[in-house]
Structure formats: C-alpha cells, structure tokens
Design a binder for these strands. Structure first.
Lengths: 210, 210
DNA sequence: GCCCCGATTGAACAGCGGTTTAGTCTTTGA
DNA sequence: TCAAAGACTAAACCGCTGTTCAATCGGGGC
C-alpha cells in the first residue's frame, strides 16, 4: 500500500532529520508528491500521529526485554537492535520534540523499569529502594536523557548506520562507570544519605515527603 | 546600549521558545525592528553566536561551584540560581539544538565534574574510579541529559518561573533515589562488575579497552 | 551652518513551509 | 460499457521566515 510506504518513509525521514523535515522530502522518499501525503493523512500532524501509533505498536510488540531497568542495559540492548533502529530513532525524536508519543514512551519505560527492578529485587540481585517508583523514574530519565543529549549535540541529520555504531561506542564507554556506580555507589560513607533521611523525617519546611 | 538590550531579549526568547523563535519576536521584545537586529549582528546566526559567547562568559565567571560532580548536586544548585536562570535555560536550549556552545558547555561540565570528583576522592569522600574521566563524563551526560529530556518533553514555551519551580520539584523527586544509588549502588553483589573486568582484560574481540 | 555617519525604520524581496485546488488517470462495480 | 470513486499530480496559494534596501532621524565634528 502506498500509504504505508509513505508512513515508513516518514518514520525514516523524521528519525534522520527530526520533525522539521519537509513534506516534500518525505514524499520524494516515498516516490510520491506532497499533495498525496495530505490526501492520505489529512495534514502533516496527521502523518505524525499515524507514525506515532505505528511506532508505539511496533515497540510494544517487540519489547520482549527491551528494557532491563538499568540505563546501561537499556543502551546496550538498544544497540543490539538492528531491525528496529528506525523506530528507536523515531522514538528519540519524539522525546526530543515532546508531544504525546514522547510522553507516553517515557512513561511506559518508567513503568517497565519499575517492573524489572522489582523482579531484580525479588531475585535478590538488586537492592530494594525506599521509593521504587521514584528510583525507576530516576534511572529511566537519566538513561534516556543521556541518549537524547548525545543525539541533540550532533546537529544535522542522524544516519541510521551512525546511530547504530555510535550507540555501540557509547555503550562501551559507559559500561565501566555504570557498573562501578551500580556495584559500589559513589560515596565512601552513608553520611549524606543518613542526613537526608533525618531531614525528610523532620523537614524545616514541609516541601519533600518521605 | 541597544545592541545589549537586543542580545538580552534574544537570550530570554531563545530560552523560552528555543532557537526557532523569530527575529521579529525578539526585536519586538527589545522594542526595535527586525532590520535593526541584523544591522547590529549581521544575521540571526550572528545574534546567536553573540548570545553564545556572552552566556558562556557569564556562566564561566559565575560558576564558583556551579557543578559538584553529582547529577543531584548539579540540578539542585541550578535550581537555586535565580538571577542566572535565563542563562541556564539558554544553555539547555543550546544543548538541545547542538552547535558549538552546546558542545563546549557539556565538555566544560565534564572537565569540571572530573576536577570535583577528584577533589572528593582526595578528601576521602568519593570512591576512586578505574576510569575517572569516563565516570565524570558518564555522570555529566546522565545529569544534564535528564534535565534536557524533562525540558524537551514539555512542548511549547518554557516560562522562567515554571523553569525554576519545576526544577526544584525535580530536584526533590530525584534526591532520594540519587543518594540511595550513590551510597549503596544498585546491585547486591559484585558479580557483574567482576565479570566485566575479567571480560575487558581478555576480550574475545578487541573492541573495548581497559 | 553644514555635513556626514551611524542608528533606526518600514516596506519590499525571496524562499520555504503546509495546504488547497483543479484536473488527470486508474480502478472498480453495476 | 459506462460512470462513479478514489489515487495521484502539478501548480498555485498563503503565511511565515531571514534578509535587503531605500529613506529618515539624530547628533558630533569642521
């Protein structure tokens, strides 16, 4: 079907150039004209919405273990994706641009991370947290955010091959510091944590809650 | 001076709306016309360059302890900035858009983080790392990246007041998980780290280096 | 007093973006 | 076979952008 070809071309283009990509470029990639795109999707925003639901569908169905709960694991496994790199890139662009899919995507990743972390805790591999949801959200934002920062810093188009190879390079660079942090932490003593726990149990101002 | 007023208005506008903001909007904010802006700065890119060097100057002179090396510290201290919030927001936009200032800024933050971490190690508060530079870069990317992700997810303009208050809220949400991670780590045993260290000492393929 | 130079403006220009429209071509169904 | 419906195109339209240009205004030097 032509509409699907347009949608796939749009996913590729949007991933490569961001959502500032023009309809004419997408149409040319799909071998059609700009008018046909809006004929099928109503508008550029309609096209984006169609891409959103499709990508979310693909990711949802293929995320058998797409997230392990740890940022290093996320990135490493993202790097292994060959076939689904376009959808991963498109998702990153969605986060970069904001909007519904971007928010839905990170919310889903936060929820998944919490599930996997809880499983790790039950299996005796991961330390329990005083705020499991907060920890999951924290780790997810840090992991996906660093990825987003990396992509944002390189201005201009992001080629799929570059995406894959650079992702692997990043994964290699990150693995050691992440493993260090995850096994031994950063601080040598618990004074800062204890002070904070004391502070939130009797806060001078009632802003944070335990 | 009028040129300085234009520059300041541009820093505010760019921070609020991103670099897609129009010259006419900036000019209106400064009480002048679009023509005068290019008369003074040559082009929109010239205006952005001028904002870049000025913001970098301000940040450099005022970063007495703008970074502590830890993501939680970064964000918390960024949140305390009242006067320099526009410059912090502009820097975030620079990272979002890529370009020279964005890269220069994170590189500087990585270097600073390494310095502060080393100081913490010398003071006996922070654990030494097998790859201090890599750890500093890792922590910087995670911390700034999560901030960038937060800003990217909210589409539309970012008001200065929202920026400050939301930054504080984020800081409160993050502090506990970060302190937990920094004191105890995430894993209960060292098996994953030991396996990796064994792996990099005799890699099956020569990609990562110890 | 005059003149020149920089600041400043308003309008116009050129290009690109999404969208619209009129028209052609292809398929389909009775 | 014919006509209606939808796929598809080419061109135009319109709003927005950064940029240019001619003209005007306002002081400072000779």
């Amino acid at each position: 079907m032509t509409a699907e070809r347009i949608r796939d071309a749009a996913i590729l283009r949007f991933g490569r150039d961001g959502f500032a990509a023009g309809l004419r470029a997408i149409a040319a990639d799909a071998g059609v004209t700009a008018g046909l795109v809006v004929h099928h999707f109503g508008s550029k925003d309609g096209l984006r919405k169609a891409c959103d639901v499709y990508v979310l569908e693909v990711i949802r169905s293929e995320k058998t273990k797409a997230t392990t709960g740890s940022p290093a694991g996320m990135i490493a496994q993202l790097a292994e994706i060959e076939e689904y790199a376009p959808h991963a890139l498109y998702s990153l662009r969605s986060m970069q641009a904001g909007g519904e899919l971007g928010n839905a995507f990170v919310e889903q990743m936060c929820a998944d991370a919490e599930t996997y972390l809880e499983a790790g805790v039950q299996a005796g591999m991961i330390r329990p947290s005083r705020d499991p949801a907060g920890r999951a959200r924290y780790l997810t934002y840090q992991g996906m955010g660093s990825l987003l920062l990396w992509m944002s810093l390189r201005q201009g188009p992001v080629e799929l091959d570059d995406f894959r190879t650079e992702l692997r390079r990043l994964s290699n660079e990150i693995t050691l510091p992440a493993l260090e942090l995850f096994t031994d932490g950063l601080f040598v003593d618990r004074s800062m944590l204890d002070e904070y726990l004391l502070y939130v149990s009797d806060p001078p101002d009632g802003s944070p809650k335990p």
